[in-house]
Every structure is written in C-alpha cells, then in structure tokens.
Amino acid sequence: MIELSDLRFSYTEGGFGLEIQRLLVPAGEKVCWVGPSGTGKTTLLHLVAGIIIPDSGRVDCCGQELTSLGDSARRDFRIANIGLVFQEFALLDYLNVIDNILLPYRINRSLRIDQTARSRASQLASAVGLGEMLSRRPSQLSQGERQRVAACRAIITEPKVVLADEPTANLDAENAARVLNLLDDYATEHHATCVVVSHDPEVTRRIKNTIDVSGFCARLQPQLAGGDKHA
C-alpha cells in the first residue's frame, strides 16, 4: 500500500511544489498517474520511492513511514521494496544485458548475486525476447529492447511496488505493449502495487485506475520554498 497524507513539498529554486491531503494506492493495485508536464508526476514518484523527502507530512509505503528513515535506510528500503523504471532507460553502457538486469545486486550490500538471481535474470530476459541478447551491450540494442532490459532490472529483486516513469514514452506501440505486459504480468503474479506515470493513451486505456495528479501541484511564493531533500 502507498499512502501520502498532509504532504507538502517544494523545490528550492522554483516556486513549484506539491500539496497533498491524502493519496492512497492500495496494495496490489495498478494505477496510472496522469497530468500535464510540470505538474509534479515524477516528483511524486520520487517521494513515494524515498528518493526525496517532503517538507512535511507522511509517506507510507509497504507499511514503512519513509520520512522517519535516514538516507541509508531509505536506500535499503528502496532496493528491497521498490522497482524503478525510468523514461530514459538509464542502463549502464559498459555492462551487458544480463549484468544490467542484475545491477541492483551489485550496488547494495543487502543483496547477493547467487545462482537463483542469475537464473531469474535469464528467465526474465527470455520472457521479454532478450534471451539471445544477454551478452549484448545497450548500444547494440533498440530502444524497445533497452526499455525491456530496464523493466527486467526493476523487477529482478521482486519488489512489492513498481514505479514506472513514462516507461513507453520513447517506444513504438509494439514495444510499449511488451513493456506494459511485463509490468502487468509481474504485478498480477506477485500481487505487487504498480504505479505508472504516463501521457500515453494506450497506457491509460490498459490501466483503468487513472488518477490526475495535477491537482496536487501548488505554485508557491518563492519565500515559502524549502530545500531539495534528495536521498
């Protein structure tokens, strides 16, 4: 479950911020957050993931109140509970497909690569048509293939929550469908909560539960603006 309550957040440099009385995403729900550009959709995802912290209010995710955690604990929480898919894929160009999928295991001491993780990575890659491309580097992949690798990386640790930021923005219809299928299947199988931020009508058609988050956007006076609170 994701729950944001009495939340206020603002960036230092701009008069932009978020004010949320209450936003709830029940556990196992698939939700699409929509809204015009610049209305704080990505910021909202970062708040839910604990990448940034609000000026005030609560962020509860998977039974954990994130604002009470320190940077390090939030990172550990993230690696254990949240899978992130970025609009620009954010793959490491010096690692091949299998190593990119296994990246979460290499960057946090709480996870260890074992045979199970390797097998799971191979299975995930095969499931999205990348079984023959495990040793290829991102530069040798198409846009769609890259986003599939990024999606596999997001779910390799079997997170309870998947947060996808415009996952289909750079993809054609076919590749967009494959990525959405992957996330959809994972969320269904694992009863995971899935939040997708998107402008894509195809996404909003597939995910019935759509929330317009533009109403949370608040144009603040500069003197009221707080600081960035990045993890």
Partner: peptide, 11 residues
C-alpha cells in the same frame, strides 16, 4: 541512477 535504485554512497 544507481543512487535512485538504492546504491549507497559508500558503494
């Protein structure tokens, strides 16, 4: 990206 995924500063 690494930090967002959950990589620690020390890592």
């Amino acid at each position: 990206t690494m930090t967002k995924i959950g990589c620690s500063r020390s890592a």
